[in-house]
């Protein structure tokens, strides 16, 4: 096996400019790093440092102005909108700070959504979603709506949803930002377990305690990497 093959992602000279009311904002000014398969990375930095922009790029929600982002060998920067959507549906697991569950859908329906858009719905879909709900400890809440769940439970649904397409690459945007310390610990345990299974996880956080649970911390400032330390 070559070194490249073991990389989950490879980021080279990534730049992103926005035009905001006539002025160009350089959100990322050339960021490069490699993400080996199975890595657990936290990205930190003050607001405006470009960490959200970076996460959006890593999550294939956006394309860089220049530079390359290889995800499993494919250059995301060259994909069109439909290919980006497909990549999101099939290869990336997303966890958001505000959970982003659809209030009208039940737990199971929320979990199965990425499969729907990945075109992978079949007879076993529900079984798989139920299994995931059990994995995150919500086996008895299958047909509840998000509004009937606590914040931690909602975030666990969101994690189950991010797992439904069995992604090797997971992104979490301040997953514990809205949770108390008990819940935070629960979620971090869950993420650690997933990482131990071999999934690559990149999370953005403000909190040192959260960053300390990861194996590598990248600190951004003004669109540059300030430090990149492995624990």
């Amino acid at each position: 096996m070559t070194a490249v093959a073991t990389l989950a992602a490879s980021i080279r000279e990534l730049r992103k400019d926005y035009v905001l009311s006539g002025e160009t904002v350089h959100a990322l000014r050339g960021v490069s790093f490699d993400v080996p398969e199975g890595d657990y990375i936290s990205i930190m930095g003050p607001s405006g440092s470009g960490k959200s922009t970076l996460l959006n790029l890593l999550g294939c929600l956006d394309r860089p102005t220049s530079g390359s982002f290889l995800l499993g060998g494919e250059d995301v920067a060259k994909m069109n909108d439909d290919q980006l959507s497909e990549t999101r549906a099939k290869r990336i697991g997303f966890v958001f700070q505000s959970y982003n569950l659809l209030p009208a859908l039940t737990v199971v329906e929320n979990i199965e959504m990425p499969l729907y858009y990945g075109g992978r719905l079949d007879g076993e879909t529900r079984d798989r979603c139920v299994e995931l709900a059990k994995l995150v400890g919500l086996g008895n809440r299958l047909d509840h709506r998000p509004s009937q769940l606590s914040g931690g439970q909602q975030q666990r649904v969101a994690i189950a949803r991010s797992l439904v397409n069995d992604p090797r690459f997971m992104l979490a945007d301040e997953p514990t930002g809205n949770l108390d310390s008990v819940m935070t610990a629960e979620i971090l345990d869950l993420l650690a377990t997933l990482n131990a299974e071999g999934r690559t996880i990149i999370l953005v956080t403000h909190e040192n305690e959260v960053a300390e649970r990861t194996s590598r911390t990248i600190v951004l400032r003004d669109g540059h990497i300030l430090t990149d330390e492995r624990r």
Binding site: G59, L61, S85, R88, N100, L101, M113, Y117
Partner: peptide, 10 residues
């Protein structure tokens, strides 16, 4: 936005 983030195409 949520649907798009989870892989919905235009």
């Amino acid at each position: 936005g949520i649907r798009r983030a989870l892989g919905a195409k235009r």
